[in-house]
Nucleic acid binder design. Sequence first.
DNA 1: CTCATCAATTCAGCGGTGCAGAATTGAACT
DNA 2: AGTTCAATTCTGCACCGCTGAATTGATGAG
Lengths: 206, 206
Amino acid sequence: MNKSGRGRRPGAPDTREQILGVARQRFLAEGYASVTMRSIAAQAGVDAALISYFFGSKHGLFGAALALSANPAEVLASVLPGELEGLPERVLHALLATWDDPERGAPLHVMLRAAAHDSDVARLVSEMAEREIVDRIAERLGGADARQRAAMFAAQITGLIFTRYLVQLDPIATMPVDELVRRLAPGLRAVLRPTPTRSAPRRTPR
Amino acid sequence: MNKSGRGRRPGAPDTREQILGVARQRFLAEGYASVTMRSIAAQAGVDAALISYFFGSKHGLFGAALALSANPAEVLASVLPGELEGLPERVLHALLATWDDPERGAPLHVMLRAAAHDSDVARLVSEMAEREIVDRIAERLGGADARQRAAMFAAQITGLIFTRYLVQLDPIATMPVDELVRRLAPGLRAVLRPTPTRSAPRRTPR
DNA sequence: CTCATCAATTCAGCGGTGCAGAATTGAACT
DNA sequence: AGTTCAATTCTGCACCGCTGAATTGATGAG
């Protein structure tokens, strides 16, 4: 009789997966800091120490829970092909559609927040973004300084995300999607263009 | 004799200011979350409860400590006058000079991190940025949608800061100042330009 | 000059957190 | 049948932010 409740459970319950599921849902809904290990454990019907056992730490759990998240690479991949000139508009539309939807936007949302909060997570997110976003765009662009131009592109996108969703800076946070796209696209196009290294062929408005 | 150490201290020691000083230094050096009230109190030679008494909460202390921080408004004000066309370069140079210097860059650094971590702080930072940055730029720009254009400008700047300093995304984090300015300025100029409301004179080839 | 009032200060403690270690239990492999 | 090991819970530590009561000094009223 398992009187004390201790010890391994009978059968083959995949407790680990269940914890992951609960953690994922909670983290996405409530962020990182305000979700406690104890509450996750309780909701998963498990002792809190088990989480440490499986994932080492709260960080570990967070990383594992968000790893299986819908990654933005897919969204990007779906808009990358096509004419280069219209790329900014396509990316902006896809991005805003994703992030404005609480369901799909939350993962990235939470990841960025956690990245700002915790430098370990920051490195993780940074590497991910570098590999899955900057490199992809650079690949699509081609050319000598493609990586640099892609990075500028990414920086602008990041700025949009941070101001609209994290800090909610007005009037960016309240601006309708169409206007945002219209206003930001020219800037994105500008940084995508190959830059003249130095005193290049002047391109005066013709 | 003050045997128990309790009670008001003799003289007129400005304990409040001293706490503020210590808090400021610690927050700027180590961020928000990892600095504990107890440690600040200890360093200030004071009981931790006194902080709650004076500032209400850790948030309160943080806000009060960073309020007297060198605000970016000054930097901005010094580069706002002058020809509009060169504004992006001036802002970028001033900004990068400030943030690359650990001493002067730290306050903003910490504020952004804290904003991402804590939604109360986020609101605070957001309002500050709106008032002291967006509105100033808008004022300088003039025109109907000056506020909107200024916001786009601010978003791009924020993206630069976030990627270069907080997340340290390569190759932005490692790029020399000159190259950053050269690559980003066109994008900034583009969003500053008055946008044609609708089906504007096409500028694209053909 | 005295005395009540009030601000400043410390102490003790509450409920909460992440995490480590020991103890228990079941499954799996000799 | 016995050993080994992974999974699980219990206990408890050190720390956190914050609160309420107790103490002390300054200060103004009479």
